[in-house]
Amino acid sequence: MDLDLMLREFFTAAVPPRDALARLRRGLGARPRRLEPLADRFRIEASDRGVTRLQPGRGVGAPSHRARRHAERAREELREYLAGRRTFFAVPVDLDGLPEFQAAVLAHAARVPFGEVVSYATLAQRIGHPRAARAVGNALARNPVPVIVPCHRVVREDGSWGHYAFGHAMKTLLLTLERATPVLVGSTTTRIVCRRGCPHEQRVADSNRVVFASVPDARSVGYRPCRVCRPARVA
């Protein structure tokens, strides 16, 4: 059997159902909701070592020049994140003074990759307390820096959202946003692949962007990972 012929037949046979095309046509008019303005509806507090609190409100709370810089940087990164231009936070967080258990929960929650979710039970296993799913939930509920430490990526075992400090709708918005935002972006002019949000990635023109699923995938077609954001650590 000729493979070329088989492939041609196989690929052209995927005809869309007629109602799918009608739905696509209707969907063309839809405008996605812009989340960017939400960045100004948080109050951000920081110490010299990093962001200490993020909560609904306005303005910043920073006792020193250095702390203010952290808070302003957090706001800028938050804005980029909400606009779908950033997949990680580079601003430091200062979680000093939190109980040991909560600190461990937050540290592990921070490692859940962008766009993915884990269950409370899985997180409990990861911190070595497999029966403490509920305690994990309570620790996350008191997360002082939501969004930056992504407690919204932790959901119930059955896939439902569970509690979220900023409400059910916000959890949906954030997870939907992450689903529509690519993580690894290559530049067709430099053939370098970056994490979305890397300063180098942000300079790439829209028409020169290609998305990759993993660093090995990108390498296999002649792209190399960026030396600044080092994407191999995440994908």
Binding site: F11, A14, V15, P16, G27, L28
Partner: peptide, 28 residues
């Protein structure tokens, strides 16, 4: 192009709902 875009997405993602969603997002 909708039909052809759908065919590519369907063969890659292997189910109708995801293919439709992908084409929708791409067109948007």
């Amino acid at each position: 192009y909708a039909g052809r875009l759908y065919a590519v997405a369907y063969r890659l993602l292997r189910n109708r709902a995801d293919a439709e969603d992908a084409v929708q997002r791409a067109l948007m």
